[in-house]
């Protein structure tokens, strides 16, 4: 499966990349929202994982953009903000899953697996 990850902390990003590559996914990553928007249409991922608070464009913008591009691409939102209102807003905008930071990379991998199974 092709996965696009947008996350601005480099080592966290590298961790996710390695963990998901180990599961056999093809991963493309970026450290800012604006770049994610650009890569979306080029890479056409099967799944998007995005942080909310990022430089240049927020994850919620990335989320709305993905859903406009193709509503069937699942989006996992990853954020330090666990408050109800933020989670609700993300789901209203079409998020398929919401993971609160700090998160476990193993858990993330399992959730990705679930989406992979649903797609294939």
């Amino acid at each position: 499966m092709k996965i696009l990850i947008a996350e601005d902390e480099p080592i966290t990003l590298a961790t996710m990349e390695l963990r998901l590559t180990k599961d056999g996914h093809e991963v493309i990553s970026t450290d800012n929202g604006q770049d994610a928007l650009g890569k979306l249409s080029d890479f056409m991922p099967d799944l998007v994982i995005t942080d909310i608070m990022m430089p240049f464009a927020s994850g919620l913008e990335v989320l709305s953009f993905v859903k406009k591009l193709n509503a069937r691409i699942p989006v996992i939102v990853l954020s330090a903000m666990g408050q109800e209102n933020v989670v609700l807003e993300a789901f209203t905008l079409g998020a398929d899953d919401y993971i609160t930071k700090p998160f476990s990379p193993n858990e993330l991998a399992l959730r990705v697996k679930r989406f992979a199974m649903r797609i294939s």
Binding site: I11, T15, P102, P105, N106
Partner: peptide, 15 residues
């Protein structure tokens, strides 16, 4: 400071 930042982001076994 790198570890502090990572601890903010990661939990479970990684944390």
């Amino acid at each position: 400071s790198e570890l502090i930042r990572l601890k903010d982001n990661l939990s479970g076994q990684s944390g």
